[in-house]
């Protein structure tokens, strides 16, 4: 065996090991989901008895029927979709509109430091649950879809992130645009935003995931069945009883251990966000490779 052949074999062994390792890593991510899928299609007793691995035992789709029962699931799903789309869009518009002027120096943007101070203060300190609730109540937003959207419309951490990203955009781009006669709106729309796609994609993802997963605000602010978001509704479908509470009606435990139902719920919740991820990931890559200035 000559050296070249030896190197070839070594490299092939490395490749195989590398692939094996990557396959195992991949499986470790996928198998839990497959297990969940199998659980969700399995008979309740088999799931509770821990007999299900990667294939359904005594196949049944009753869990999905249960999750979607009563029509509330469908309306809750749409409420979640709506709040995610509207809420995230609104978040992005406000974050961009506030972080762009804040990214300028105080000479360019009079009062910038004061506004920044307010932003940082509000980011660091908040009034707590009761004042938050009272404000929303006083604004008469309780039991409206807006209660799920407006209070989260301006995530201040995102403002700080976006502002720092805008600050890293080369000054020369803005100056060149001004010389060409662009207004600030045009500079923002045609220069800053296209360059900032990675940051926008990240913040959009933060916003969308946050809205999709939020259940607490739905629980506190919404009483109307038709306006309850998905996560809040699912909580009532698969809730665990608190073992320390002395409320042990036999009936209460009927669904407590329903692992198959919980698996179905998890999948229903996870799938829409899983679908969104790959689309946004494309922008992370293309955004980063965007070249603005050369030389």
């Amino acid at each position: 065996m000559n050296r070249a052949e030896y190197r070839g074999i070594r490299s092939r062994v490395f490749d195989i090991l590398n692939h094996l390792l990557l396959i195992m890593l991949g499986l470790s991510c996928i198998l839990p989901l497959v297990h969940l899928l199998a659980l969700s299609f399995s008979d309740r007793a088999a799931a509770t008895g821990g007999l299900v691995t990667l294939w359904p035992v005594r196949f049944t789709a009753i869990t999905y029927e249960k999750v979607m029962e009563a029509g509330v699931f469908i309306s809750a799903f749409w409420v979640s979709v709506l709040r995610t789309v509207v809420g995230t869009t609104l978040q992005m518009i406000l974050v961009i509109l506030i972080s762009f002027p804040l990214s300028k120096s105080k000479e360019e943007m009079p009062g910038r430091n004061i506004i920044m101070g307010v932003v940082v203060f509000a980011y660091l300190f908040n009034g707590g649950l009761i004042p938050w609730f009272l404000v929303i109540k006083q604004l008469r937003m309780l039991n409206t879809l807006w209660a799920l959207i407006i209070p989260q419309a301006l995530p201040l951490w995102n403002v700080i992130l976006m502002m720092n990203f805008f600050r890293r955009v080369p000054k020369e781009l803005e100056e060149a645009s001004i010389i060409d006669g662009a207004t600030y709106w045009q500079i923002l729309l045609y220069v800053y935003l296209p360059i900032s796609i990675p940051a926008l994609a990240t913040l959009t993802l933060f916003g969308a995931v946050g809205h999709w997963n939020a259940w607490f605000d739905g629980m506190i602010l919404i009483a109307d069945r038709d306006l309850i978001p998905l996560q809040t509704f699912l909580r009532t479908v698969v809730i665990k009883m608190d073992m320390n509470e002395f409320m042990r009606n036999p009936e209460d435990f009927g669904l407590y251990s329903d692992r198959s139902l919980r698996a179905a719920q998890t999948l229903v919740t996870v799938v829409p966000i899983l679908i969104v991820y790959p689309f946004l990931q494309r922008y992370f890559v293309s955004g980063i490779t965007l070249g603005a200035l050369k030389g």
């Binding site: 509109l97 937003m141 409206t144 879809l145 807006w146 407006i150 109307d224």
Partner: peptide, 14 residues
Amino acid sequence: GGGILVAGCASESA
């Protein structure tokens, strides 16, 4: 920004 906030508050039908 403010307009959107106001629009949000206006809808209050519970």
